[in-house]
Each structure stands twice: as structure tokens, then as C-alpha cells.
Amino acid sequence: MTTHYLVLSALLFAIGAVGVLVRRNAIVIFMCVELMLNACNLAFVTFARQHGNLDGQLIAFFVMVVAAAEVVVGLAIIVTIFRTRRSASVDDANLLKY
């Protein structure tokens, strides 16, 4: 059963990664990042059960805390950028290049 959970976790992680790469809306990209974090959490929880050790759950808990902080700051940045550029597309912010 552990294998199934881990494969599901890997699938969700890969889907999230592809989402980050193909979407242009910064908010959606953020959602995909959250999806990847959740996939990781699933793996942590699964391993905690596999090994009979609560540390995995603890790490998942910390991941959630950090993810919450990250979302707050990230969304604030998006709002600020949107306010000046009237766009939430990550492709529009490409001034730093060759």
C-alpha cells in the first residue's frame, strides 16, 4: 500500500511541476507550487506510517507552516506587481535578460 501512496505523491508532484512550467498566470503557478508541496507532505506522512515514527508528520506540519508564510509573501508580491504593471503574467517580467 505504501508504494501506491508514494506513486500518487510522485504523480501529483510531477503534475504540479508541469503546471509551474506551462502556466503563465502567477497565481496559478503559485497554486501549482502548493500542489507540489502537498505531494511532498503526502510522501512524508506515508513514510511516517511506514517507519512507525512521528517525525515525518512533524516535518509535514512544518512544511505547512512555511508554505503558509510563503503564500502570504508571494501573493503580496503578486499584488504589488499587478498594481504597477496591470498584469499577473510571469512572462511580462522579463527585463533581466541578455
Binding site: 509551474v20 506551462v22 503563465r24 510571469v90 512572462d91 522579463n94 533581466l96 535578460k97 541578455y98
Partner: peptide, 8 residues
């Protein structure tokens, strides 16, 4: 030219 400026 690889440095396109696109974060993606």
C-alpha cells in the same frame, strides 16, 4: 541568448 528573461 539562453538568458531569455523568462522565469519559466
Amino acid at each position: 541568448r539562453v538568458q531569455t528573461g523568462f522565469a519559466r
